[in-house]
């Protein structure tokens, strides 16, 4: 017997008809289940928000006054005719996959996820399901991530070499998630300073109890040989003029591509998303017979899954 779809695409975003709620909607809806606090998943204007306890503080910081509630990982909630629960996605602190069960049929929306563990966020947990909605930001076989420890060692080496010539090291990273993953991974090697935008999020996560090293918000020149963690945007502002002698490097999965490294003096390939093998392993671990693709190389990735014998199509 085939079940009706538990998640469908609508103009506002993904929608669960049996539960009457949206997941990570971008258009205004009455009820939103949100996987994590990045702005392409958590948007303003929803009537009510539901996310993990761990994701809530950053979402409140970014969205202002909202009607929001937190749930524990694994806690089951009845919404309409379905039972929902949130499970660690390993992408950023508090990030979740959302499991939806309706009369024995189980669908899971992955949100954004990373299968390899890091020093900061709740590690990815595979969830068995019949249908898996997977992101595929890096869903092509040219994306293979080095182990995090190797990339962190390269960063530490770069930082030390800069410090030896009395240069500050400026690492460019997204302000929520990657920035804190870097400081957690490089803790104990020297002074770490932050751009104010990075510091705001860091302070929130530190107050939540995430293991983050002490950081100093930077206004003016950094101490000699310090590591400065900033957003790429910050480098085009007057703030950057106060940095004094420094070297800049970017940290992103996109740095795997020569075209994206162009114009950077140093680049580290470090992603908060699963790589090609990670995506394929995560899909296999769900046991799902149907996989719907979203965010990224949705067409070729879906074609690849069909070639492997799965039912697959693009959902968003």
């Amino acid at each position: 017997m085939s079940h009706a779809a538990l998640i469908i695409a609508t103009p506002q975003g993904l929608y669960c008809p049996s539960g009457d709620f949206h997941i990570d909607p971008m258009g205004r809806v009455p009820r939103a289940l949100v996987t994590h606090g990045h702005s392409d998943h958590a948007a303003r204007g929803m009537g009510a928000y539901l996310c993990t306890h761990q994701a809530l503080p950053v979402i409140r910081h970014r969205l202002g006054r909202i009607n929001a509630e937190g749930v524990a990982y694994g806690e089951r909630r009845q919404i309409g005719e379905v039972t929902v629960s949130f499970h660690p996605a390993g992408h950023v602190p508090g990030s979740a996959q959302i499991r939806i069960e309706h009369r024995g049929e189980v669908w899971v929306n992955s949100g954004d996820y990373k299968t390899a563990p890091d020093a900061l966020c709740e590690p990815f947990e595979p969830v068995r399901c019949h249908t898996f909605l997977t992101e595929c930001t890096f869903g092509l076989p040219i994306f293979h991530w080095q182990p995090e420890a190797e990339v962190l060692a390269q960063m530490a080496h770069w930082w030390q070499a800069n410090a030896a010539k009395s240069c500050a090291s400026v690492l460019l990273a997204y302000s929520f998630g990657k920035a804190q993953r870097l400081m957690a991974g490089l803790a104990g090697l020297g002074a770490i300073c932050t751009h104010p935008v990075v510091e705001d999020v860091t302070a929130i996560l530190r107050a939540q109890g995430y293991p983050l090293p002490p950081t100093t918000v930077l206004q003016g020149a950094p101490p000699k040989g310090a590591l400065v963690i900033a957003t790429p945007n910050a480098m085009a502002t007057d703030w950057a003029l106060g940095l004094g002698p420094h070297e800049v490097a970017s940290a992103s999965g996109w740095m795997a591509l020569a075209a994206r490294r162009k114009g950077t003096t140093a680049a580290f390939t470090l992603s908060d998303h699963a790589d090609w093998l990670g995506l394929n392993a995560a899909i296999a671990a769900t046991g799902a017979s149907q996989v719907l693709t979203m965010h990224g190389y949705t067409q070729p990735f879906s074609q690849w899954l069909r070639a492997k014998g799965l039912q697959s199509s693009v959902i968003a």
């Binding site: 092509l140 076989p141 040219i142 591509l257 020569a258 075209a259 190389y297 067409q299 070729p300 074609q303 690849w304 070639a307």
Partner: peptide, 15 residues
Amino acid sequence: THTPPFLVDACLKVA
């Protein structure tokens, strides 16, 4: 690596 032609083409669009 047993990469089918359609995936190689998709990769060449990116790199």
